[in-house]
Nucleic acid binder design. Sequence first.
DNA 1: GTCTATAGACGGATAGAC
DNA 2: GTCTATCCGTCTATAGAC
Lengths: 198, 198
Amino acid sequence: MTSTRRQRTGPRGGDTRGDILRAARESFGEKGYDTTSMRAVARAAGVDVALVSYYFGSKDQLFAATMELPVSPSELIDRAFDAGVDEAGPRLVDTFLRLWDDPETGPAFVALFRSAASHEPSREMFAESISTAIVNRYATHLPDHSTRRASLAASQLIGLAVLRYIMKLTPVVEMTRDELVADAGPTLQRYLTGPLTD
Amino acid sequence: MTSTRRQRTGPRGGDTRGDILRAARESFGEKGYDTTSMRAVARAAGVDVALVSYYFGSKDQLFAATMELPVSPSELIDRAFDAGVDEAGPRLVDTFLRLWDDPETGPAFVALFRSAASHEPSREMFAESISTAIVNRYATHLPDHSTRRASLAASQLIGLAVLRYIMKLTPVVEMTRDELVADAGPTLQRYLTGPLTD
DNA sequence: GTCTATAGACGGATAGAC
DNA sequence: GTCTATCCGTCTATAGAC
């Protein structure tokens, strides 16, 4: 042992793979897929570029690894309906915003949305996910199983997320989660159980 | 005159600048800023790459030219408030959706949004536009000039646009404009003039 | 496991001939 | 106005030394 080592990067006792993954999550989340380079990820993680390929193979695979969500949306939705459909509106808003606020899960959502907006295959994945895992799941909890009600609800949630986490619009980013729940909760509730046109 | 000319690209009697602009609009709209290359734009327009630089200088300037909207949002907003703030909700939804449905203006909005989602300078432009031209404009028509009310309204509109025109989610794309106006109109109305928490 | 070196593409932009 | 040729940069990915 006792070898003379460069001080530039060092031998890294730590979690190299994890460091890369964290850096990638952040960069994909902030800048999107194509603006993010493996070099930049490596730099942010404090590792050599070649290690990114070494651990993840390709940029696509790195991205895929980044996208794996540590949560099950279906479960969360079910739980939001636990207290009955008549109180689900605000609870859904709260659950939804918590996911985006959470530093563990938020960046993945941002990254997912960003690429869905500019990358056709991602868009299909995204639309499919929203459709089956979210909208249809909402619908199962509704008296009339209406996907129309469910997607109206989804539209309000997505709108909040876009302004707050993607576009970072001043009044919305500055509001607290509780304020948003209080303001948008009734909207969700009306979409789910209130009177709509037919 | 009467010179022998190559048939590969030809002398182009037509509107070269316009052809480039149209091709760029489409590509930026479909694929976003960085996925769009000047080479691809030139190919789609049927012109030489160098002409893109010749007419627009840089990729950034080409993009900026692409983004110029043929409508004044402020005016449209004012008109939606013509019948009084108590009926503005549904009218705003209608006006907003018409803009996105219109083949003249819709593609520019899609392009604007797409690149705003993945290109930081565009995001700033977009956020700035929404903030001043939309949210603040709404606010001037409200009794309490609340930008918070205005941005909640904006969140619902943006959410509809995202699901309908960007992500193309089945239940939402299939609904008619009138249905959406009827369903989301009351939401807007409540955000503008209804009871909110403080 | 970590790094150097390099191959191989592609992109933006410019100079200059026609 | 249009095109050719080219410079220079950045990127992904891999081969191979340590």
